Computed example of a mutant assay.
Amino acid sequence: MQAHNKTVVKSMQILTLFINHPKLTFNEMMELSNLPKTSLHRMVGSLEEMGFLTKDDNGHYSLGLIFLQFGQLVGERLDIRSIAYPIMKDLRDDVEEAVNLIVRDKDEAMYIEKVDTLHPVRLYTSIGRRSPLYAGDSRIILAFLPQEERENYLENIRLKPIAMGTITDKTKLRHAMDEARSNGYTITSSELEDYTKAVSAPILNGKDEIVAGISVAGIEARFQEDRLPELIDKVTKAAKAISVKLGSQTH
């Protein structure tokens, strides 16, 4: 463990050199880092192989394009939270149910913001909670991914039952995703926890790509059929308001 920690520390020592230096030669990195030549050579090679560093034809190193991806994701998620929160709070105050903000994290979904219901009987969900993309309010994200990504996910995932309403048949799941894209929202029942219900809508960015989902979720008894049209209307409007602030023009 200590050896791995030292490797990480040295790697960060190399990468942080580029905060103040857009480009560096190998010798310049050696002078600035005070690392032994052999050790530096090995670590620079690994960082280049993983895409964290790139080398031009003149032998100058710079940070790899992967940092643009990381930076975009971090910035986007932070922006979503700050933009979404007041809209989520208004929605919670209006419908008096818990409102969740969900993003994709590889093959899972993560809850990154929540405004809880004031009802004493509530559905337990915490910031940082993870769930599979195929189940519950998380499915709104899967449904709006590009077709190739959806199919790749379905080919490589095993649908496990989580609660009594979890969809474990891939044909039914595809149908549910088709409906979500057609309707612009999902209604899920007892998929992550028994006797719960959620209404979810997609949040799109300026490229009209799915970047998050917003949901109203709670105890099934408070989500009667005659109330669903109101919840659908308010959740989709909240999703649109957030998407517009992120630059989307699709809604």
Rank of each mutant, 00 (worst) to 15 (best):
N5M: 09
P36M: 05
I203N: 05
K197Q: 12
A3K: 03
L142W: 09
P161K: 03
D56T: 06
E48Y: 03
K160L: 15
I162Q: 13
A201H: 02
R92E: 13
Y61N: 09
V95H: 07
M50H: 05
R104Y: 03
V95Y: 06
V44G: 00
H119M: 00
V74T: 12
H21I: 11
E28D: 08
L53C: 05
D137T: 12
G165A: 10
Y134C: 00
H119A: 09
D90P: 05
R104Q: 14
A180Y: 02
P22A: 10
A241C: 07
E48A: 12
L118G: 10
L145T: 10
V9Y: 05
I87P: 04
G184L: 05
M12L: 14
A198R: 00
L63H: 07
G136N: 04
H175S: 10
L142I: 13
N58A: 11
I187S: 00
S11H: 09
L142E: 08
A198H: 04
L231F: 15
R104H: 02
E225W: 00
T38G: 14
N183C: 00
S46L: 13
N100P: 04
K37L: 13
L118I: 14
P86R: 02
T188H: 01
T16F: 14
D90N: 15
T171I: 14
Q69M: 09
H119R: 07
Y111H: 03
N205F: 03
R150L: 10
Y195D: 12
V211C: 00
H41C: 01
I141Y: 03
S33H: 01
Q69E: 13
A135T: 11
A109H: 01
D178Q: 06
M29A: 04
P132S: 12
S200A: 14
